[in-house]
Nucleic acid binder design. Structure first.
Lengths: 351, 351
DNA sequence: TGTTAGCACTCGCTCGTGTCGAGTGCTAAC
DNA sequence: GTTAGCACTCGACACGAGCGAGTGCTAACA
């Protein structure tokens, strides 16, 4: 499609513009990217590239800027996947070690790592768990009027909540009630707890039957909350560093969108389970108006039978795609390691 | 010190400048704040106010702007404490109800409420717990190679962590080990767990002695983490809305400071336990260079025998002190209610 | 036929100038 | 003590000239 020289010129324009955020002129290319031809020749080639819609001018005597189509071509055909630098790998490895036993912080930490390494805002969503099941329930004494309910789910997350009662049973009683609860509930999802089972449990609870219903209600709430997908961001302030967002109104809009749960899901797109690998969505390709001047780099990861989560980076169209893609890919590998270590059977898309 | 008319003029200048962020001229005051005198008279009075250092001019023909001294006088002598609006009270009350049983989210929610109600960035730090004691320990089975350790402290926070072992004991064993742990550890702080006690426990653990040391190590870590004071922010993006921070470099510096734990503590100031009531720190009165052009409104709250936490709002010097102070005061009352309800014996400073 | 030097042209950027208006300080009159 | 009037200051804004980076076109050259 493009001869070698046009290819190199387009590459030079994209790279230079990513680096400087200034329109790139023919002389700059001739001097800085030594192709062995004069600026006049480059001008002719640039004119052709413009006819192809790969670059464009802001006004009739300015340098050229890559168009969305140009970025697309760059990403698809000439971007060199960069290997992670040693310190980047180290950073990610350390993150695994620190987080492998704390699944609940992992997503937040992943977002932090992404934005730290790339200086772009990062979004990470938890996998959508289709039907969380109870793995273990434990009642822990607190004081005369309260006990603590600890719930472990099959997704290895742990939740706890204080249960206030007019009179809480003592330690021994709670231990035996915990045993009853586990025998009945372990392995069940919330829908499987039917009338019949509750009746049986009420009978076993005997004089403590009055504590059962509040507990079941709280368990239901907890699982409900667990079924809600959480979503984390990090490094949002980095957008202030990009000249394309120097307009305060734009910056504030993006800040706002990245603070709001609903719009975060809009950005990630639903259903986002379909695609595998790392997707690069450039400018106008974004569904959201707000992001038409941004690029989004995202990837899905899947936990078998439990659903798909999403990690993403947002930047200006002029973002460093090579870096962003390689860091995202490294983080994706990390997530898979952690999921495997936790025994959750990862099925994350290859890239 | 000031005659009645000067008083009113200064008040008008401060109020108008807080509202508009534009230097206030004599005609504006004459027209908008009908004092019954002409602009010329007001000009004479303004000249006197400037001699007193209460207001100043940006250049020789601009309107007047309150000086730091002027704001100080305003706050000390003429600010009218505003009552909370019904919807604000409602908002705060609902927040209590939703959070009273989730002490760990309370601080984050408090910060959110503060910034939501005032549109200023908010900072909330947890009280510094001097010596967290163990209230209850529970071991919960997970699978063949792991168990869950749940720790309840005397501050009513609950922590849990997965303990990985080569072979984890079964349910009955864990129940009896939990009982041993509680008998020995309940009521102790980490320093009180001495060699002698550990030896006794090792003896009681019998064939399961090998799990004790990892568990004690993790408990120590948890309490250590609990002794670390956490600090939360909310609404930082609001600074973008103030013209005084329209300079992107300034905005970014503040963003940065409000993201960094260490600088947050610098902002709150240590030791911050001394003062009671709501403090208003204006411009240059701030110790930190970064905040010399900002104002800080803060208050401490104390939990008996456990230490002091801090809540604060940051804004431009031209901030709405009356609103900020009343909202902060309302939130302070809220915190005391929650602390009382949790049985933590509040001792928060009156204001 | 492809490449290059030269040149006219475009257009954003910067800087100086002029005008406008909000605001002040001073003075004289009430 | 208060006010009207007036000269003065100075930032904001608009306008125009000059500059320079960059382009497109053309003619000459290898």
């Amino acid at each position: 499609m493009l001869n070698d020289r046009k290819f190199k010129i387009l590459q030079a324009i994209v790279n230079d513009y990513i680096e400087t955020a200034e329109p790139v002129g023919s002389r700059t290319i001739a001097k800085k990217y030594g192709l062995g031809v004069s600026s006049a020749t480059i001008r002719n080639e640039m004119s052709d590239l413009e006819d192809l819609g790969l670059i464009s001018q802001l006004h009739s005597s300015s340098g050229r800027v890559p168009s969305a189509k140009g970025y697309r071509f760059f990403v698809d055909s000439m971007m060199q996947r960069r290997a992670l630098a040693p310190d980047e790998s180290l950073f990610l490895q350390r993150m695994i070690i620190e987080n492998i036993f704390q699944a609940e912080y992992m997503m937040q930490e992943t977002a932090k790592a992404l934005s730290r390494l790339t200086n772009y805002p990062a979004i990470v969503s938890e996998p959508h768990m289709k039907k969380t099941a109870i793995k273990h329930v434990q009642l822990v004494p607190l004081d005369e009027k309260a006990l603590l309910l600890v719930l472990v789910t099959d997704t290895k997350t742990v939740k706890n909540q204080v249960v206030n009662l007019s009179a809480a049973p003592g330690y021994e009683t709670l231990t035996s009630l915990s045993a009853h609860l586990n025998r009945h509930l372990a392995g069940l999802s919330i829908r499987e707890i039917d009338r019949e089972r509750i009746d049986k449990m009420l009978a076993e609870f005997g004089e403590n039957a009055h504590v059962l219903m509040p507990i079941l209600g709280i368990i239901a709430d907890m699982i409900q909350a667990e079924d809600d997908v959480r979503v984390y961001t990090s490094g949002v302030k980095n957008i202030l560093a990009f000249p394309e967002f120097s307009d305060k109104a734009t910056a504030e809009k993006i800040f706002h969108a990245l603070e709001d749960r609903a719009s975060l899901f809009e950005i990630l797109g639903t259903p986002y389970a379909e695609a595998t690998g790392i997707q690069v969505i450039i400018g106008e390709e974004n569904a959201l108006d707000l992001l038409k001047s941004c690029s989004l780099i995202k990837a899905n990861y899947t936990i078998d039978n439990q659903g798909t989560g999403c990690i993403a980076l947002i930047g200006p169209m002029r973002m460093d795609y090579a870096q962003a893609v390689s860091v995202l890919s490294g983080v994706l590998t990390n997530i898979r390691h952690v999921i495997d270590a936790l025994g959750l059977r990862s099925n994350g898309g290859t890239d």
